[in-house]
Amino acid sequence: MLAKPFSLIFASMFSFAVGNVISITLPSLSAVASINQVEKIARLSESQQQERLFLIQTVNQLLRDRNLSTAEEQSRLFIKKFPQDAFGYFQLGNVLFRQDKPTEAIAAYQQAIKLNSRYALAYNATGEVYASQYRWQEATDAFNQALKINPEYAQALANLAQVQWEQGKQQEAIASLEKVISIYKSQNQLDKAQRLERILRDLKRTDDPSVS
């Protein structure tokens, strides 16, 4: 029996859906700042920190407003002012991905990783770009790298599950999703866990029609 396309089942839950509109999740500052990054930010003057925060908020709002050309301009301004700040390149990658510029987006994410080798979000974002191009092995490698840095990174593991399903590895995908649900429950994100449990039941029925 042919498996139901995973991207259709997961379209409302995850940040990439092959063949559909790409949706970038805008991370909080606490989510993207490694210890090294926090130390770099702490060395900025108060006015520099305020300017940095203003530029980040500006780009995020422009992304929400779908004003992508201006968002790119502001992202590049951020990089010009803070060239050693990995977040600037990560944010630029998000903007470029939204503009359907996958090669440039990957280059931006890779620059972020060059500045911060433990940037799990940048690895995950790179995987999302590869997945949107059906480059499953490269996507798998990127998601696994994100998970190597942070084994509890539920979004990266969920993305990996989607790639596994797209490759016909249904049992691996289901096992990955079961772990994602466990992570969400441990983080008290019960709404996400419950939604995933419903999706998982659908997947199991698809993979094995005898499952009720």
Results as ranks from 00 to 15, higher is better:
Gln84Asp: 05
Ile24Tyr: 13
Glu39His: 15
Gln137Gly: 05
Asp191Met: 13
Val59Arg: 13
Pro151Asn: 09
Ile35Val: 12
Arg195Lys: 11
Asn124Trp: 14
Glu46Asp: 07
Arg201Asn: 06
Ser28Tyr: 03
Pro27Gln: 01
Leu68Thr: 14
Ser28Pro: 06
Arg43Gln: 11
Ser212Asn: 13
Ser28Leu: 12
Glu138Phe: 02
Arg66Asn: 07
Gln49Thr: 10
Asp207Ile: 12
Ile56Val: 13
Thr58Lys: 04
Leu121Tyr: 06
Glu166Phe: 13
Glu138Leu: 11
Ile174Thr: 02
Arg66Asp: 13
Leu147Arg: 01
Asn188Gln: 10
Trp136Phe: 08
Glu51Trp: 13
Phe82Gly: 03
Asp202Met: 10
Asn159Asp: 10
Ala122Phe: 02
Phe54Tyr: 09
Tyr134Gly: 03
Tyr130Ala: 00
Leu63Thr: 11
Leu44Thr: 06
Ala17Gly: 07
Ser7Thr: 04
Arg64Leu: 10
Lys101Ile: 02
Glu178Phe: 01
Gln99His: 05
Tyr119His: 12
Ser117Leu: 15
Ile56Leu: 09
Gln189Asn: 09
Ser30Phe: 15
Arg66Phe: 14
Ala131Met: 02
Ser182Cys: 10
Thr126Cys: 10
Val21Tyr: 07
Arg205Ser: 07
Gln91Thr: 09
Ser15Val: 01
Gln155Tyr: 12
Ile181Pro: 00
Phe82Cys: 05
Ala142Gly: 06
Gln61Pro: 09
Ile149Trp: 06
Gln48Ser: 11
Thr126Val: 11
Lys40Ile: 15
Pro27Leu: 02
Asn36Leu: 12
Ser182Met: 11
Trp165Ile: 00
Ala193Gln: 01
Leu115His: 06
Ser210Arg: 08
Arg98Tyr: 10
Gln84Leu: 13
Phe16Val: 15
Thr70Asn: 05
Phe54Trp: 12
Glu178Arg: 07
Ala112Gln: 07
Ala158Gly: 06
Gln162Phe: 02
Arg135Val: 08
Glu73Ile: 10
Gln74Ile: 10
Leu92Arg: 04
Ile79Leu: 05
Arg76Lys: 12
Ala125Ser: 12
Ile113Gly: 03
Gln99Pro: 11
Ile79Gln: 08
Asn188Lys: 15
Trp136Ile: 01
Leu2Pro: 08
Ala131Trp: 00
Asn150Gln: 09
Glu172Asn: 13
Arg195Ser: 13
Ser212Phe: 13
Leu96Gln: 13
Ser182Lys: 14
Gln84Ile: 04
Tyr109Ala: 07
Ser212Leu: 12
Ala31Glu: 09
Ser15Pro: 03
Leu157Ala: 08
Ala31Ser: 04
Arg201Phe: 14
Arg198Met: 08
